[in-house]
Structure formats: C-alpha cells, structure tokens
Simulated scan of single mutants.
Amino acid sequence: MYAIIKCGGKQYKVTEGDVLDIDYTGKAAKETLEITDVLAINDGELKTGDAVSSAKVEAEVILDGTGVNRAKKVIIYKKRRRKDSKLKRGFRRSFTKVRITKIAA
C-alpha cells in the first residue's frame, strides 16, 4: 500500500516505514504530524479524487532540521565575463525528517 501526498508544494510517494525530508514544520522530535493533503492511495487499486478526501497520513518527527542539522550547503555562483562582476552565495535548507507510521484510507 502506498500513498501520494502533497507537503510544502512537493509531492511524495510514501509507504509505511519510509523516512523522508520535508520542508520545515516547526515540530519537535517525537511529535506526530498529520498530513491530510492526500492525492492518491493504492491498496490493490488506485483511488483518487473524492475517494481519498477523508484519507490521512500520520508521521513521526525524527529530527528537527534547524540550526546545526540543516541540509548540505548549496553554492550559488554568478560570474559575468569581462565585467569584473562576481557573486557567491550559499543556501542551507531547513527541513524536518519524518518517518511515515500509518496510512489511513
């Protein structure tokens, strides 16, 4: 059984026991997170639309990815040739690491 959920503007295909990094939610470790934005569920046959309007996915927060535990730094480097113009910036994404515990259809 798997579900397709929408969280933070991205779509994820999840099964029970999966661990994934989603956008920062502000929840502390060991709290539960309930995701109600379920797009599809497959439990032998694919259900979408009104058939999954009451479905939800429960997840347990493993790690709060702020401060030291943020994602790997991405370097943004822009250079305009022959103009003596350079720009270097870094970006580290804050995330929440969750484990999917239950898919309720």
Rank of each mutant, 00 (worst) to 15 (best):
M1D: 07
Y2S: 14
I4N: 04
I4M: 09
I5D: 03
I5M: 02
G8I: 08
K10G: 02
K10F: 01
Q11C: 06
Q11R: 05
Y12M: 02
K13R: 15
K13I: 11
V14L: 06
T15V: 08
T15H: 03
E16R: 04
G17R: 05
D18H: 13
D18K: 12
V19F: 05
Y24P: 00
Y24V: 11
T25L: 04
G26H: 01
G26P: 01
E31W: 08
T32M: 11
L33E: 02
E34P: 00
E34W: 00
T36V: 07
D37C: 10
I41K: 10
N42P: 00
D43A: 02
E45W: 08
D50F: 07
A51I: 08
V52A: 11
K56W: 04
K56T: 07
E58T: 15
E58K: 14
E58L: 14
A59V: 09
E60I: 04
V61D: 04
V61W: 06
V61H: 03
G65S: 07
R70A: 13
K72V: 00
K72H: 13
K73I: 10
V74G: 01
I76R: 14
Y77G: 06
K78R: 15
R81F: 06
R82K: 15
R82V: 05
K83T: 07
D84H: 15
L87F: 09
G90W: 02
F91D: 05
R93I: 04
R99A: 13
I100L: 08
T101N: 08
K102S: 14
I103G: 05
A104C: 07
A104P: 00
A104V: 15
